[in-house]
Design a protein around this nucleic acid. Structure first.
Lengths: 188, 188
DNA sequence: GCAGTAAGTGGTCATCGTGTCCACTTATCT
DNA sequence: AGATAAGTGGACACGATGACCACTTACTGC
């Protein structure tokens, strides 16, 4: 019952790669929220059916592209060196997390925006991970009821918020500084 | 040049009212983000063209409905009694603003969600007002560069964030408490 | 009152994106 | 080589958008 699983067909793997690179280029080229399934299919040179076989919607494609970058950060948060990883005070760890997320948004903000279509932001796995992390930091800081605070502390990292700030002429460093101040709510 | 302006026709005013009440009911009845122009036109008993004459999109209708409620809060912020209005310390004013916004979201969250379609959240007039208010509070608190902080402090009030928190079982009071803690970043 | 006029009305139309479906092709296993 | 299931891609139906325009109606100045 475990030997019956065929490995992925070679042409399927090739198409998967073509789809992902084509999608990445499209997301980077124009407003990610206006990219359509048809655009990606055409750019990748595959049919729409092929696209829908693996990805139910645009957001899934963007999530697949973001995945590897997010995984690295997630690993660093769990077992990397302080202040990102364990060992530093909660306030510093939160500030470090904020800074890392700003870097992530700065380099892959287009993908992050694309994952937002349909308003599924809170349902993707990554959000739950970030939330669990912030929640544990808040607990470690001795916050009484940290649950409502977790979503509040994550809200400023919403892709559209960051994009808006960048569009207003704010630099990533300015945002990082402001977020570091925000992290101080874990003091007391 | 001022006598040449005709007043609004009686039937137009009647239709405007029919549209607004019908839209309010629809937004309250189902997920506001799934309400369509056709739905509203049908429910109001008018044609689609009539709808588009005054409102370019769904968000405009929701904005029109939210407007009066938001205006009252805006007036209180500018000239109401403390701690909402002038007179109290910035931290307390921010906390009071947060509490008032939670109440607004609790009673009219459906409209707030409807104004978000198309991702125009930062372009509507209300956002600029809230931002200017928070900005002035941050300045009054002696924050060095308050501009990046303003958007960050407003992010937790995004309609979808609040809706998500409510959906997770959090009560308005819990959210208010957490936001009050957040307001303490204006201390120092 | 009574035209004249412009605002208002409502249905139709073209367009676009979505997601499903299915007949056909092709890689992989035996 | 033949069987089999995975994979492919184009066609299709559907739903929503927003523009368009011929018709109607309420206000205007005479």
């Amino acid at each position: 019952m475990l030997a019956t699983m065929r490995k992925e067909r070679a042409d399927a793997a090739r198409n998967r790669a073509k789809v992902l690179t084509a999608a990445a280029e499209l997301f980077a080229a124009k407003d990610p929220r206006t990219v359509t399934m048809d655009d990606i299919a055409k750019a990748a040179g595959v049919g729409r059916g092929t696209l829908y076989r693996r990805y139910p919607d645009i957001a899934s494609i963007a999530v697949a592209l973001l995945d590897e970058h997010e995984r690295r950060l997630q690993r660093d948060l769990l077992e990397g060196p302080p202040p990102l990883g364990p060992g530093a005070p909660p306030v510093d760890r939160l500030a470090a997390f904020y800074a890392a997320m700003v870097d992530l948004l700065e380099t892959h903000g287009d993908l992050a925006l694309a994952t937002e279509v349909g308003g599924r932001r809170f349902e993707v796995g990554a959000y739950r991970f970030w939330r669990a992390h912030v929640l544990s930091l808040a607990r470690a800081a001795g916050i009484a009821s940290p649950d409502p605070l977790a979503d509040i502390l994550l809200a400023p990292l919403a892709p559209d918020v960051f994009a808006h700030q960048r569009g207003q002429g704010l630099s990533p460093d300015q945002v990082k500084t402001a977020l570091t101040r925000l992290a101080s709510v874990l003091t007391d």
